[in-house]
Amino acid sequence: MTTYFAPSTLSEAVAYIHENQTAKIIAGGTDLLVKRYEELDSMTGFMDISHLAELKNIKTGEEVQIGAMVTHGEIAGHPWLLQHVPLLCQGAAAVGGPQIRNRGTLGGNLANASPAADLAPPLIVLGAVAELAGPQHQVPLEEFFSGPGKTIMQPNQIITGVKFTKPAANQGWAYLKLGKRKAMAIATASVAVLVAVEDGQLTDLRICLGSVAPVPSRAKKTEELLRGQRLDSLELAAAQAQLQAEISPIDDIRGSAEYRRQAAGPLFRRALLQAIKNAGVEPDA
């Protein structure tokens, strides 16, 4: 017995999921329907929020707000985002192939809570806050994930979008992803870096890695080590070693823990240097 309900407003959606907590919330379906053969027969019902116009907006400006039902393709090709937050566009462009990007949504990518989710590291370094409805709640995205496939959301909550402050002019960014092939690959490791550069100094930075821990995770000790360092004397080798020490990858079909640890180091270093370059400075290394 599988039921279907497509609310026409957010409040309808909230009311429905409150009453039907076993219903699966479906958006683009690019994660949920993959489980067809294993689980679909036992799914009791769907609440389809892919049509909810309220969740499809991209609000630009000093504070950026992106609705949960915005697709990866829409983010990747959004002219304003491409100009002001290209980091996020690059994350979105790294998802699947064109067909997946045309259906998969920001909300789905986050709610599915894969440690490899391509949007999570960029959004976390951007300092994004996840907005939830049901019991309304705002939570830093960094605290949103609680384990592989798990979030802090209650069964009666819906993610409605994310918001973050537009990066400043002196900020630079990069998102790099390592996969077993060049397209349609789930990341073996991924890293997003956002830096702020002033007068030849790395005044601030945030590093977030995917696929090297149960949830997308900041590398805070590495950030600490690098924060305040001068660009002409960056301790790259030490930072790389610190990063490799503070991640906790596992073995799976995509790669061993050992490999992930080894490869994450240089991947991070390249992202850092690219981010510094994007901040308008030519790094030495």
């Binding site: 279907y4 683009g28 329907l33 393709g73 259906r103």
Partner: peptide
């Protein structure tokens, strides 16, 4: 689907309404 390429195995028929 509405001009965009989609994998029709990952779209519920009801979603194409």
């Amino acid at each position: 689907m509405d001009g965009k390429s989609v994998a029709s195995c990952l779209v519920l028929a009801l979603q194409a309404n």
